[in-house]
């Protein structure tokens, strides 16, 4: 067993020997790691090391593409995600993408409630209003948009759009939120708003975030994974990893020797 990989007791998510290949090119190699509930876990590493690939395996987005093969297993609260229906799984794992992508034809309100509406879940108007308000309050967007809920989501600024996308992912009350470099397309002010938000959200959700920004990982994450060429090199408390990295590659990355 690799001693640089911290063992987590009672993880909410347990990834075991997970590999993902694009055709013959293996992008994630035998990753085994446990994720701690109600914490922010950062996935770090140089560009192309497989961060997004690992993240997208967790809500089984890879199944959309025939050239991608995933092996290994992942347990969410001890339930094998590959045996669940993908629909049920994805409702428990919200995802936020690199670029804000609100549904362009929908209003702010409809964007937040899209998961319910498009699933044909019938609800009272009041129930919907409550979900929309709660989700928008969760992302600190409510006060900014409460008078323009019927406007298109695409009219918002980039940072607001990204918070809207987080609200959309929160509407279903997922257990885990997956974020793939959610601030890389945003300015510093919008970025710090989202960082504050994530720190607050971990009270109720478990957050797994890909970032290639080391200082961001240091600022907001409790645990960090460091990946290199598809392998999980090191995993531990963020504080420890930044002050005392175990693996030479981690150290070189953190001191800016590559990446």
């Amino acid at each position: 067993m690799n001693t640089n990989i911290l063992q987590i007791k009672d993880p909410i998510l347990s990834i075991q020997d997970l590999s993902v290949a694009y055709d013959k090119n293996v992008a994630v190699k035998n990753v085994s790691v446990g994720i701690k509930k109600n914490n922010v876990t950062a996935i770090m590493g140089p560009s192309g090391c497989g961060k997004s690939t690992l993240l997208r395996a967790l809500n089984r987005l890879h199944e959309l593409y025939e050239n991608i093969t995933t092996t290994g297993s992942v347990f969410l609260n001890d339930e094998d995600i590959f045996k669940m229906s993908p629909i049920k799984l994805r409702r428990k794992m919200g995802m936020v993408f690199q670029r804000p992508n609100p549904f362009p034809t929908m209003s702010i309100y409809d964007n937040v409630i899209a998961g319910y509406k498009l699933n044909g879940i019938s609800q009272k108007r009041q129930e919907r209003d409550e979900i929309v308000e709660r989700s928008l309050r969760d992302v600190a967007l409510w006060d900014e948009v409460k008078d323009s809920l019927t406007k298109k989501g695409t009219f918002l600024s980039g940072g607001q759009q990204q918070r809207l996308c987080i609200a959309r992912a929160l509407a279903f009350n997922p257990e885990i939120i997956l974020l793939d470099e959610p601030t890389s397309a945003l300015d510093p002010v919008a970025t710090s708003k989202i960082e504050d938000l994530l720190i607050k959200l971990k009270e109720n959700y478990t957050i797994i975030m890909v970032t290639h920004n080391m200082s961001q990982a240091a600022r907001i994450s409790d645990y960090s994974l460091f990946m290199y060429l598809g392998e999980l090199v090191e995993y531990g408390k963020t504080k420890n990893m930044f002050t005392n990295p175990q693996d030479r590659r981690t150290e070189e990355y953190l001191t800016g020797k590559f990446g």
């Binding site: 959309l64 629909i87 049920k88 670029r99 992508n101 549904f103």
Partner: peptide
């Protein structure tokens, strides 16, 4: 953009509803 489709599916919406509710309106 491909990510609109992925965003819809990532919300646990079945493919045909993503198609008729998001892609075709877009």
């Amino acid at each position: 953009p491909q990510t609109l489709k992925e965003a819809g599916l990532a919300l646990g919406i079945p493919y045909w509803r993503v198609l008729f509710g998001i892609l075709i309106p877009t």
